[in-house]
């Protein structure tokens, strides 16, 4: 009788083990449980300006607050956002790059944690971004790509222009508890 009980227990655990192997394939649930906000932007690297087309490097650290109000841990699987700089005096933002990470990090239940993404820009890449995907806006505002890139790279130390985080999307997995979470986010720095 006890042997039978033991076999039943073993079968139960084995079935449980295999049955638990279907994470991520549940229909995507509504986003909204975890919450992401931009805390601040920091300069991680800034090389002295050299005239284009030689590239000048700028590294920006984007510090996010990630809130997990649920009662279970969530695993970050993918985090991406577009980085835009304000063309000074115009109120218009130019999208310069898309930061993407695939770090697997767990966020404990009922906590607010911080997550930093460092994105590198180079002045040549910025110039291309202004000439291609931002060309329409650049023409409408009658802006010069080289001059604008230089202005950003040489004055960013005081953050005199806005930096926008847009098109943000983080994918969290609850590892089978509630499917995946898609959390859109955006933010601006400095916060005016």
């Amino acid at each position: 009788m006890r042997r039978l009980l033991l076999i039943l227990i073993m079968i139960t655990f084995a079935v449980w083990g295999i049955a638990a192997c279907k994470p991520g394939l549940l229909p995507t649930e509504d986003p909204g449980k975890p919450k992401i906000t931009l805390e601040r932007v920091e300069i991680s690297r800034l090389a002295p300006w050299v005239e284009l087309p030689a590239p000048t490097i700028m590294g920006l650290g984007f510090l996010f607050n990630i809130s997990n109000p649920s009662s279970y841990p969530i695993k970050l699987e993918n985090f991406k956002f577009a980085v835009s700089f304000e063309a000074p005096g115009t109120g218009e933002y130019m999208t310069l790059s898309t930061a993407t990470t695939y770090d697997n990090i767990y966020f404990a239940p009922k906590t607010v944690s911080q997550y930093r993404v460092v994105e590198f820009l180079d002045s040549r890449g910025v110039q291309l971004a202004l000439l291609l995907p931002n060309q329409v806006k650049m023409k409408a505002l009658n802006l010069n790509a080289n001059e604008l890139a230089k202005k950003w790279f040489t004055t960013i130390g005081d953050f005199p222009f806005g930096i926008n985080v847009g098109e943000g999307m983080a994918v969290f997995s609850s590892e089978g508890i509630k499917g995946d979470f898609f959390v859109p986010f955006e933010g601006k720095f400095p916060k005016k």
């Binding site: 655990f13 295999i18 638990a20 192997c21 898309t98 291609l132």
Partner: peptide, 28 residues
């Protein structure tokens, strides 16, 4: 055994796919 099965099958149940994109360069 259950936990090992979860981990092993969980790994095997993921298909990894790479994608190279140009979102900032000459064809962005």
């Amino acid at each position: 055994m259950g936990l090992t099965a979860t981990w092993v099958f969980g790994q095997a149940q993921e298909v990894r796919l790479g994608a190279l994109q140009d979102t900032t360069g000459g064809t962005s």
